[in-house]
Design a protein around this nucleic acid. Structure first.
Length: 299
DNA sequence: CTTCTTGTTACTGA
DNA sequence: ATCAGTAACAAGAA
């Protein structure tokens, strides 16, 4: 499930690997993955190159060198962007190389960028929720305008989060997952940040104390930074641009640990409920919930 | 077999 | 108008 750290890992890799490489052709195996005209898509990209790779929230933005064009690319839940160097011998010995780059394309490969130097960029997506869309500058600005504050930016402060919460009464997790408010947090890091802050994800925002809001901001920044450092979290599907898994899994405190012992208090078992329509994990001992609010039923 | 998984959007209803 | 909850999307894993 690519969230901000996973998308950022792919972005920084690709910026280094493919910018300036001339695209020879683009092969589209699954038409629905391309939003808009596939014919125009191929025509604009052939002979062009990527000038830069940026990101807003979980959305990748490739700026094209020629013309007023940007390629918007969303990995959604199972999208992968894998780069294969031209005529390079695949070096062995990587313990976390869970995807055989040499075997690409595979049955989940929907788009292939062929570079003139023989390199190839594969867009794979098991569930076909991801998309690629060519837009002009105004389309890019429009897309960007839908996203809220970058949680790693200096603009994301306790006062800023309090302002975003406003008069909302939904669980705090809903706010953290709302891309129009904060851009890039998904289910994994929402749960992990709430754990680090000692706040239950299903706490109504109105019940949060200033200290807890400040802790959340600090926790969000720290967990995202650390996850970027370890190149993201892989459960099943996420791979970086080399086909490697992320290395953050071992640092997860609550996500995907339902029924297991809390690593902090070593007393309580991690509970799992449904909040914001998503599986939600927390330690009943370490994450506070005011007694005046009736608890939600556990799954 | 059924249930659950998630990022995003469309829809529904308060 | 605003806000929150849920179904839908696809293709699995458990």
């Amino acid at each position: 499930m690519p969230e901000l750290p996973e998308v950022e890992t792919v972005r920084s890799d690709l910026e280094r690997k493919i910018t300036g490489h001339k695209i020879k052709s683009v092969k589209v195996n699954h038409l629905k993955i391309i939003k808009g005209s596939v014919q125009v898509f191929k025509k604009i990209l052939a002979g062009n190159s990527f000038k830069s790779v940026s990101r807003i929230g979980k959305l990748l933005i490739f700026k094209l060198a020629k013309g007023d064009y940007y390629l918007l690319l969303h990995l959604k839940m199972t999208g992968q962007l894998i780069y294969q160097k031209g005529r390079a011998v695949t070096p062995g010995g990587h313990s976390n190389l869970a995807l055989d780059v040499a075997s690409l394309p595979n049955k989940h490969t929907h788009v292939i960028f062929n570079f003139t130097d023989g390199g190839r960029l594969f867009f794979n997506d098991l569930r076909k929720f991801g998309y690629l869309k060519l837009v002009d500058e105004s389309g890019k600005l429009q897309a960007e305008s839908r996203f809220g504050v970058d949680p790693l930016s200096r603009a994301f402060t306790p006062a800023g989060l309090k302002n975003l919460i406003g008069s909302r009464r939904a669980p705090i997790k809903n706010i953290l997952l709302n891309q129009e408010l904060i851009a890039g947090i998904g289910n994994i890091y929402a749960d992990e940040a709430c754990f680090l802050a000692g706040v239950r994800p299903n706490r109504p925002t109105s019940s949060l104390k200033p200290k807890e809001i400040a802790n959340l901001v600090k926790s969000i920044k720290s967990v995202l930074k650390k996850a970027i450092k370890y190149r993201g979290t892989t459960f099943n599907n996420f791979r970086d641009s080399d086909g490697h898994t992320g290395n953050f899994l071992k640092f997860l405190n609550v996500y995907h640990r339902a029924g297991e012992l809390c690593r902090k208090c070593k007393k309580a078992k991690i509970a799992k409920i449904k909040t914001a329509g998503r599986g939600t994990h927390f330690c009943p001992h370490c994450q506070s919930y005011p007694s005046v609010i009736p608890a939600e039923a556990e799954i």
